[in-house]
Design a protein around this nucleic acid. Structure first.
Lengths: 146, 146
DNA sequence: TTTGAATTTTAGGGTTTCCCTAAATTTAAG
DNA sequence: CTTAAATTTAGGGAAACCCTAAAATTCAAA
């Protein structure tokens, strides 16, 4: 099999951020920018990026930035699917504002199981966009039965 | 002030377990038993117990077992409140069975904010027992307004 | 085209959290 | 009293994060 390793919660934060910047905002992912977003030093970002690179989740060309691999993209989307489904739950059921829904979802998404997310998805009629208008990626195991 | 330190996710697991055994099942909390429940070695349990003791969350009499302090009891109840409110959500909304609801709740309770839990509590009419019939502790900040 | 400022990476550490084995201790049952 | 079972101490180890200082690289402006 491909050398597919699991990501830590912290690495998950990086993946989500990188995907959003690169794939959804077409912005260049700079070490400095990421460092600022996450409140760490540039050297730390480089280190994490090298770990993600060893896990084949992204390609890293020294001094030139990163590009998510197929695996990294898939992983980022899985995480963002969880994040956004949780946002839907927190908004629609709990009268949260989008800002708070996102904040809460950020704390929980990494820990929510695929099954739980799919159950919520089903309960909310398989929504296709989250409160912030971002697309909610689909999951082949999430049947729209009935 | 009392030297009140924050607990790690792992320590939270110990607190929940100890509270359930000692306060809800009136069972003696044995190092060996805890070790078996959590899948670690007895020496590890002793170590964690000493940490919790330093944080004044429980009292430890060497070779004789532990007793939660006021602070430890409060902390355990806060955690179990979160756990059980999440169980209500997962059961009632998502057609989960109690077993799975509990499993999912266990992964998320530590990370759920007080505000989020109170919002769920409100949405479900301030339930007083969870799917397993255990009591859901109340939170002074969770208003039964309306 | 050179050069210097900005960005990025390397080198070398440090802390915290969690867990383990082996060797004492202590308890408690017979 | 003695000894088996339970518990604790002693001494480590690995993984996850983060940092500073110094070196490398890029790039844009003279």
């Amino acid at each position: 099999m491909g050398t597919e390793l699991s990501v830590t919660e912290n690495e998950a934060r990086y993946l989500k951020l990188i995907y959003r910047k690169q794939c959804e905002e077409s912005a260049k992912v700079r070490t400095t920018t990421v460092a600022k977003s996450l409140g760490v030093r540039p050297a730390t970002v480089t280190e994490v990026i090298q770990n993600l690179s060893e896990k084949n989740l992204l390609r890293h060309r020294r001094y030139h930035g990163v590009e998510l691999t197929k695996g990294g993209t898939t992983e980022a989307r899985k995480l963002l699917r969880k994040h956004r489904i949780l946002e839907v739950l927190f908004m629609d059921i709990l009268n949260y504002d989008a800002r708070n829904a996102c904040k809460e979802a950020s704390k929980l998404d990494y820990y929510a199981s695929r099954d739980l997310i799919n159950a919520i998805c089903r309960a909310y009629g398989h929504p296709e966009i989250c409160p912030c208008e971002k697309t909610i990626f689909s999951d082949s195991k999430c049947k729209k039965n009935k």
